[in-house]
């Protein structure tokens, strides 16, 4: 199952994108129950594209909350266009998904 849940809705020429990503966004500052520091594990970059068009790149640090939420809006897309969303984290893990703009 994808770690990314995303909806892209077109209204009056503006596409509103709302996304939730499952990710611990661990800062590296917290101490676990064993008394050891929990290693940092957080998403560093999220990219949104429609075809080869760059819509948004988000650069994140550990100051973004666990299971991150992100919403943004853009113009110029049509219903049926495919929005691609991808993320990569500080451990090199990544995920991506696609959604049809409705």
């Amino acid at each position: 199952m994808s770690s990314i849940r995303v909806r892209a809705q077109l209204k009056d020429g503006v596409t509103q994108v709302r996304t939730l990503i499952s990710h611990p966004m661990e800062t590296g500052q917290r101490t676990g129950s064993d008394g050891k520091k929990i290693p940092a594990h957080y998403i560093t970059q999220v990219q949104a594209r429609v075809g080869d068009r760059h819509v948004l790149t988000a650069h994140w640090g550990p100051g973004i909350s666990r299971n991150p939420y992100l919403s943004f809006e853009f113009e110029g897309a049509s219903a049926g266009d495919i929005l691609s969303l991808s993320w990569v984290d500080n451990k090199g893990e990544s995920d991506s998904t696609q959604v049809e703009i409705a």
Partner: peptide
């Protein structure tokens, strides 16, 4: 916390937590 690069046509409006 975060920095965003907006493509052309992307509105200057971002929500996060």
């Amino acid at each position: 916390t975060s920095r965003y690069e907006l493509g052309e046509g992307t509105r200057p409006k971002i929500s996060t937590r």
